[in-house]
């Protein structure tokens, strides 16, 4: 390594250390706060509506992640492999949920479901301000992130293997299932992890479209908001720590799944 190279590494190391240190400090700040009053921190977690919120968060984020993966992967494959009119428009629209403020997603969904003819349907189905609204709000954003990840994955994969598979007797669908999807597994795991994490932490759209209804549409980010509003900062910090813990477990599992795939693909080396 030349002198310049060493300096380059030094500089980015310092930046990295500062940033990672900041993140760690943020978590530790929460920990410090709750250790000051463990009793009320545990008290918050013991409350039934908070436990409901934890279950509801886990359930809705999981459901949204699965939906996002199927929908987002399908659209990504279509846009990556096919040429059709309006393709650029589709590609642009898929970015909307990423660059729009989350609140706008929530308001738009609310207007769509309550101020258009869809309202009649909503009156029957009960989407807005109920659990389906949480899943819908999370999925709308989740799909966009899956799309970005999977489109990049498909774009980076040559179509040649698919074509060869077709020449060997596979249908287009068969080639997609047997060749494309297995080879895109790394991307799928990443996309699923991002979709889940986004859904798990989604707040703005949920607040507007699902309401912040205690015990009904209260997911963990909403709990934090409600606890802050009633002055329970320690409780809010405690819920945040539980979110961190849950996310750590889920993302660790996802990482492990991705690594296992990598190892088994590289396995059998001479």
């Amino acid at each position: 390594m030349t002198h310049g190279d060493r300096n380059f590494i030094k500089v980015i190391s310092v930046v990295a250390a500062a940033y990672v240190g900041l993140l760690l400090a943020m978590v530790l700040a929460n920990v410090m706060l709750i250790t000051g009053d463990l009793a009320s921190a545990w008290g918050t977690l013991a409350r039934p509506e908070i436990q409901q919120a934890i279950l509801l968060s886990l359930g809705t984020s999981l459901l949204s992640a699965v939906l996002s993966i199927w929908i987002g992967t399908g659209i990504a494959y279509l846009v990556s492999r096919e040429r059709f009119p309006g393709q650029r428009l589709v590609d642009f629209l898929m970015d909307l949920p990423i660059f729009l403020p989350p609140l706008v997603i929530g308001i738009s969904l609310l207007i769509l479901f309550r101020r258009t003819p869809l309202a009649a349907l909503d009156d029957v189905l009960g989407v807005a301000f109920y659990v389906p609204a949480i899943v819908l709000a999370q999925t709308v954003v989740g799909v966009a992130f899956v799309y970005r990840t999977m489109k990049a994955t498909f774009d980076s994969m040559s179509t040649r293997q698919e074509r060869i598979a077709q020449s060997l007797g596979c249908s287009r669908f068969g080639a997609f299932c047997k060749i494309t999807l297995p080879q895109a597994r790394q991307g799928l795991v990443t996309a699923a992890a991002i979709a889940w994490a986004r859904s798990f932490g989604e707040f703005g759209p949920v607040l507007i479209f699902a309401g912040s209804i205690r015990g009904r549409t209260e997911v963990m980010p909403v709990s934090i908001y409600l606890e802050l509003n009633s002055g329970n900062l320690i409780g809010a910090a405690m819920i945040a720590l539980v979110m961190i813990a849950i996310a750590a477990v889920v993302l660790f599992v996802a990482r492990a799944a991705a690594d296992e795939q990598k190892i088994s693909q590289e396995g059998g080396e001479q």
Binding site: R160, I164, Q166, S167, L168, G169, S171, R172
Partner: peptide
Amino acid sequence: KDPAGRSIGYLP
């Protein structure tokens, strides 16, 4: 016809 329908063994 699509590639599958041609039943040709292809070595790229």
